[in-house]
């Protein structure tokens, strides 16, 4: 466990809790893409199938349970409890345009042609692009609430920190995970534009506005 990976996981947990906090306290899913949250649910379920078959550590299992349960809770809040506040008209990204390619790629590029490994690779590829509906929604609505931008910053930072972890592991342990690294770089690059807006606007106390 490198420091970067721990920082990455904590940033990930922060993001998930920030989102739950925002929806719960404002009793509103306004500005939040339900499709992104649905795909995150798929990401965690398909990645953590080994939750009951292989025990790595208490930390590992706890985080897996936390990620799965928090993402299910978030989807529940958006599509059921606060359904009336869900802004479906701006959440128009076609999920199948990312789910199908991720599945096809997982069938081609995986570590073993087994259900578990294909499911794991699918999860990794899907996670890389799962944020697209949310980023689309921010550009469509033209802005994002402050807490939503902090959520996105924490979420984008988690995989960026994992990249540092992978560099660290390659340097000290001499091996790396091509599928996770490739997808992790794509995932972090997709936040590029958002990070720019975040650092030039939100940090200076202004609202995140996507300039028309």
């Amino acid at each position: 466990m490198t420091l970067f990976r721990l920082a990455g996981d904590l940033s990930h947990v922060l993001a998930i809790l920030l989102l739950l906090y925002k929806i719960w306290t404002t009793k509103s899913a306004a500005g939040i893409s339900g499709k992104t949250q649905l795909m995150f649910c798929m990401v965690y379920v398909t990645r953590y199938l080994d939750l009951f078959t292989s025990f790595i550590s208490v930390y590992n299992s706890t985080m897996k349970v936390l990620f799965i349960s928090a993402s299910v809770a978030t989807v529940y809040l958006i599509y059921f409890k606060f359904k009336a506040t869900y802004d479906g008209n701006h959440d128009t990204f076609r999920m199948e345009f990312v789910i199908v390619p991720a599945l096809i790629l997982a069938l081609i590029w995986n570590y073993a042609f087994t259900f578990f490994e294909i499911s794991w690779a699918f999860s990794i590829f899907l996670e890389a692009v799962a944020i697209l509906p949310q980023l689309f929604m921010v550009t469509k609505t033209g802005e994002a609430e402050n807490i939503t931008s902090h959520y996105l910053f924490a979420l984008g930072s988690y995989r960026a920190l994992y990249i540092l972890n992978w560099i660290d592991r390659y340097y000290f342990e001499g091996h790396w995970d091509p599928i996770a690294v490739t997808a992790g770089i794509v995932q972090t690059v997709l936040y590029g534009d958002f990070f720019y807006l975040y650092f030039t606007r939100v940090i200076k106390g202004r609202k995140l506005q996507v300039l028309p």
Binding site: R5, H12, I56, N60, F67, Y162, H175, W176, D177, A180
Partner: peptide, 10 residues
């Protein structure tokens, strides 16, 4: 099959 490290990462 010595799987790469990814199975110990989240």
């Amino acid at each position: 099959l010595n799987l790469p490290s990814h199975h110990d990462e989240l």
